[in-house]
Design a protein around this nucleic acid. Structure first.
Lengths: 352, 352
DNA sequence: TTGAAAGCGCTAACAA
DNA sequence: TTGTTAGCGCTTTCAA
């Protein structure tokens, strides 16, 4: 029997082609084949050619688990997204994944927002994979999870918010600023009596408070606040608007914590023959793709989610590859996109 | 120096706590510690207690790369989703991920729909991780990728469609049946002149063809078909409806290949003071959460995406754990959800 | 530029 | 029930 050409596989082998097989076929040592594949300019053209041919002929695909184990670099990034309303974050995740992929990294997806037990398990699962970086949507409050992440030594990037005490890196924007700026924007247009429709969400809460404070600082009447709870559906928006009409019928402008809620408000208004923006102005948050083309087109707050994803990928990879990231804290800001749903009919103004 | 209590780490070590550290602390062999952690009922209560305490004290998290390498089981599932319009599939991905997570598996996300080169790279990246299973949205046409997947020996599940020649397992529904049934549904209601608005998508194409054939088999006038190309936006729906009005003004009902396109059609209709459903009926596809609460509520085709995700996770795990999956081919069907957008005013009918 | 040796951290296989 | 041994498939380290 010819042991060199057809080595017997041990019983533990997975059966797949290994670097060793390629090396034997190319007539070189495994480590040389490894170099030809990973750092081709470290080998002679002759060796390179032979190894490439062997790879072609065998259909060899390197085992990244083995590579990761040996090099302590998994080329894996873990992303944690809330399990509900993923939609708003998808743009970011796509950009993150795309940028990572182009650089040879893979994305592992984890869903948060279930029980505390599951959060704990999620963290274990993530750390167990030894990712080169962790992407978090939102910021992590002090607690067990935060301590654990810090202890793991894995680069972490928190997003979609700002905090003076990030775990590590941070890319976000100020929700308070948004509340304040939106209030200013609407007050500048001449509205005086406001309502807010918001989902039970800590960040939406901060936008709400800032909005209310800004309005009340101007001596305007109290802002009517409708909390729709966990449900961010269009239906909740409709119900909230019904409540507004019943309890604060003199409201002139409604700021919603998401575009979908705003769409609900506008839907209910139309069902009641209340004209937006003539009778009441509506603003959303998120600028999901279709609100620009609705009738009336929705005025909303736009976050550049793609930028967050792309930047986060770069930061994480920089850190994974030992490069300095500075500053690791970036405020990407936001913009108010003025459309028809807040067009005061009496005093027309040009676009923002 | 006390080598037993504080073993010197080799220069290659990643520095993290290993099973060996835990074993030493618990006073047992590494394999015993491994058993205590993974198959606790194979060890004595005494050993179990000591190991658990050691795990607690050290904060040990097993390295899954090492475990996967040793056992040839990565506990990783790769999912491939189209990079555009992820929205429709999110429900499925969430269910998939949730079910996998509860069983100790992780999800790796890959985005398809870019260049052929990148598809090739994506496949390499996936196979390189040695996942225990691969989830595909859609079916894979014969070609290099298909051959490669087949050769990898990794369990594959194709979804969201039906084919007599799946790579391996399959969970989907018939797009032709949908086209045919929707046509029948609308014809039964008395509509006679139809238009279709569809995105350039192979599956939408099959629904379109089946719809058209079913209509024409009844001797009804030709179906006007508006292809909106790659853009599935609300705006495309508006533009398509404008074309319909110009080129086929006698159309009574429009079937759209997505709810968003249907929303566009309804938006354009409203902008032109055309009443839905009085003047024209509109149907969508997908049943995204908010179309039920719009005015008018949209009649649409519902796919149980959650079921697809949950079932796919089970199938994939069954196969990964050596269990038979039969039948590995499931037609989950679809349902037509009748709402107001197709309510013929002259001949009211009860709900479906 | 190439290679031999020695792991990375874990588990399968076998033995006691 | 517990342990010993020998890998999994790759890369780091060091030497030629």
């Amino acid at each position: 029997m010819n042991d060199k050409e057809t080595p017997k596989r041990s019983r533990r082998s997975s059966g797949a082609i290994t670097l060793r097989d390629v090396a034997i076929l190319a007539g070189v040592a495994p480590i040389t084949a490894s170099r030809a594949i990973n750092t081709p300019n470290q080998v002679s053209p002759e060796v390179l050619r032979k190894v490439q041919e062997a790879v072609q002929r065998t259909g060899y695909v390197p085992n990244r688990m083995a590579g990761g184990l040996a090099s302590s670099r998994s080329r894996l990034i873990a992303a944690v997204v809330p399990s509900t309303v993923v939609s708003v974050f998808m743009e970011t995740i796509e950009a993150l994944n795309g940028t990572l992929f182009d650089a040879g990294y893979q994305l592992m997806l984890g869903q948060s927002g279930y029980s505390a037990d599951r959060e704990e398990l999620l963290l274990e699962a993530i750390i167990g994979r030894r990712p080169d970086g962790i992407f978090l949507t939102g910021i992590l409050p002090p607690g067990k999870a935060r301590t654990r992440l810090l202890a793991s030594g894995i680069p972490v990037i928190e997003t979609w918010d700002l905090t003076p005490t990030p775990i590590d890196m941070l890319i976000g924007f100020s929700h308070s600023d948004i509340g304040r700026e939106v209030a200013k924007f609407l007050m500048d247009k001449g509205y005086k009596k406001f309502a807010i429709v918001h989902a039970e969400d800590e960040r939406a809460g901060r936008r709400t408070v800032a909005f209310r404070d800004a309005v009340e600082q101007q001596g305007l009447p109290p802002v009517f606040i409708a909390n729709v709870g966990a449900s961010r559906s269009l239906k909740s928006g409709r119900e909230a608007f019904t409540r507004i009409l019943a309890e604060a019928p003199d409201v002139q402008a409604v700021f919603c914590s998401s575009d979908l809620l705003a769409l609900g408000v506008m839907t209910e208004a139309r069902a009641r023959n209340i004209n937006v923006p003539k009778d009441i102005a509506v603003m959303g948050f998120g600028d999901v793709p279709f609100v620009a083309d609705m009738v009336p087109a929705l005025t909303t707050v736009r976050i550049n989610g793609e930028q967050i994803g792309t930047l986060a990928a770069r930061f994480l990879m920089d850190r994974a590859e030992g490069r300095e990231v500075s500053p690791g804290i970036v405020d990407v800001g936001f913009s108010i996109i003025e459309r028809d749903s807040t067009a005061l009919v009496k005093t027309p103004r040009q676009k923002h």
